[in-house]
Design a protein around this nucleic acid. Structure first.
Length: 225
DNA sequence: AAATTTACCAACCGCCTGACT
DNA sequence: TAGTCAGGCGGTTGGTAAATT
């Protein structure tokens, strides 16, 4: 199959930020031939050394008339939050509820704002050297995270980051998700707290039995934060 | 003031689906 | 019916500005 995706698109075409000249060329091309006309022909027609997808993306997310820029209003934020709860990560569907906003903007917004909301609404417990896992309350409605403070950013793969952190800490070849069935943050976001609390309980019990974890628990303050 | 970390967002990638031949 | 192609989607990356140490 000859796809423009991937390797075929990688080698010769220009990538990275668009210049004003490129924007102008693309804009004029769309004005002349219309938005719906074969994206494959757009780079050639416009005189651009870009792949069709790059052209399409630039038009739909930046150049197309009527696109709103700037911060999301409170109403828009509420719509996004409710639609995301309803539809999950179906960004294109969510975008239909917000005329003028692009799929990419909404996706970016969710990846940052909703994560911040999550952190502010879920208690993050740090253990001290005088505490152990018996001090954790499971099932209170709050999410509980055990891991490196800086490992929980919107820009990282939370599960992998936490796994690696624990691997290093415990000296294991493979860690939590495989060995301990650690619940995932994404699942908590979906409102499945009851199931996850049960998993979390099992996970913490498993960790407590891990010999190296005794060291972790005894030196928690130095290690974690 | 410099170094480091965090947040934001533009842009790319790979996969899926449906239309067409 | 199978193969090809183009459009579309969600996930991810990478650059950089802002904030923090």
């Amino acid at each position: 199959m000859m796809q423009e995706d991937g390797a075929a698109c990688k080698s010769t075409v220009r990538k990275g930020p668009w210049s004003e000249e490129e924007d102008d060329l693309l804009r004029k091309c769309i004005e002349k031939y219309g938005e719906g006309s074969c994206w494959k022909r757009v780079p050639q027609r416009a005189g651009l050394n870009r792949c069709r997808k790059s052209c399409r993306w630039r038009w739909l997310n930046y150049l197309k008339p009527g696109i709103k820029r700037g911060d999301f209003s409170e109403d828009e934020a509420n719509i996004i939050a409710s639609q995301h709860k309803l539809l999950g990560n179906r960004w294109s569907l969510i975008a239909t509820k917000l005329p003028g906003r692009t799929v990419n903007d909404i996706k970016n917004y969710c990846s940052t704002q909703l994560y911040k909301d999550y952190l502010s609404s879920h208690e993050v417990i740090s253990l001290t050297s005088t505490q152990d896992f018996n001090g954790l309350e499971i099932g209170s409605g709050n999410g509980i995270e055990v891991g490196p403070k800086n490992g929980f950013g919107p820009e990282v793969n939370e599960q992998n980051d936490n796994d690696n952190w624990l691997e290093n800490l415990l000296g294991l070849d493979e860690c939590s998700s495989q060995n301990y069935s650690e619940p995932k943050i994404g699942q908590l976001l979906e409102g499945e707290e009851s199931d996850n609390n049960e998993n979390m309980d099992q996970w913490i019990s498993s960790l407590r039995d891990e010999p190296n974890m005794q060291f972790v628990m005894n030196n928690w303050e130095d290690i974690a934060y």
